[in-house]
Simulated assay, not measured.
Amino acid sequence: MMFRVLAADFLKIRRKAIWFLIFLGPIGVIALQAANYGLRYDYLMEKYAANPWGAFLGNIQFLLPVTILLGIAIIASMVANIEHQMNSWKQLLALPIARASVFSAKFTLCVLMLLISCILLGIGIVGLGLGLKLGTDVPLISVIKLSFYPFIASLPALALQLWLSVTMRNQALPLTVGILGGVVSTYASNMPDWFLWKLPLLTNHAGIPEYSVVAGLAVGIVIFAIGLLHFTRRDVN
């Protein structure tokens, strides 16, 4: 049943600006890094001659948390707002479809679209790195981790943003929470490891990025479950 709802959701966003945002995120990150190297190419190549790919990936990693968190807030809001704008929540929930399927389909839609952004980011990283002549020994494992780890660690934020966006007709509060979360993430490196908006930074006291990824996945499932339970038990205007 969820897959039928998911297919319908894909049709609803077919001609929406949301697809522009899916491409804008990774393109923006790559463009900023291209500008960075374009302006300081000789300096950066000389400074990081011992490990040009490592420095390149490190600079990109600095941009990702705020980009992902802001993107999550906007995309979750746009996905939920389709129903709000058309006043179709009551009609949708009156159909012989489980509420859990509706909420799960919205969450899955967001995840799939953001995964597309992650794939585009990985392709862009490799393409730009080769274009900058950083070397043909592309660290593919590091590129894959950089492309997907921050997103997986951001799943709690996605679950929270979708929960707020679906249950609130006025999207001002969900967007405010998302924007503040993105801004706070840039200063969150010294926050406790359990701080939700620190997880995408992949920094923790153990110094193991995978801990943040696993924590993000686990907490994301918990928040999703709470949001799902709340959605199934309340009226949506």
Rank of each mutant, 00 (worst) to 15 (best):
L162K: 02
V183E: 11
V138W: 01
Q171I: 07
Q171Y: 11
L140H: 06
S154F: 05
G181H: 05
L140Y: 10
I152H: 02
N190W: 12
G178F: 02
I152D: 04
R169W: 06
G178Y: 05
I141F: 10
L175S: 08
L132C: 09
K133Q: 12
Y149M: 05
M168D: 01
L121G: 12
G129D: 01
L121S: 09
Q161R: 00
V126G: 08
A157P: 00
G135I: 03
V138A: 03
V143L: 12
F148C: 03
L155Q: 08
I179G: 07
S185N: 05
Y187W: 10
S165L: 01
T136H: 07
G122V: 04
K133N: 13
T186I: 12
L130N: 11
D137K: 14
P150K: 11
P156Q: 05
S189P: 00
N190E: 09
D137Q: 10
I144Y: 12
S154H: 07
A188E: 01
I152Q: 08
A188D: 00
I125A: 02
K133D: 07
N190M: 09
I125H: 03
L130H: 03
V166L: 08
A157Q: 14
V143Y: 08
V126A: 15
S142G: 15
P174T: 11
L160Y: 09
V126D: 07
G182K: 07
V138K: 09
T176K: 02
L155I: 11
V183Y: 02
L146D: 14
A157R: 06
I144M: 15
P139Y: 05
D137C: 00
T186E: 05
F151A: 13
M168G: 02
L128R: 03
G135V: 02
L120Y: 01
G181E: 04
V177M: 01
R169V: 05
L120Q: 04
T186H: 04
A172I: 15
P150H: 06
A188W: 00
N190Y: 15
L162F: 09
Q161V: 04
V143F: 05
L146P: 03
L158H: 06
S142V: 00
L162H: 01
P174R: 10
W163C: 02
T136F: 13
V184P: 01
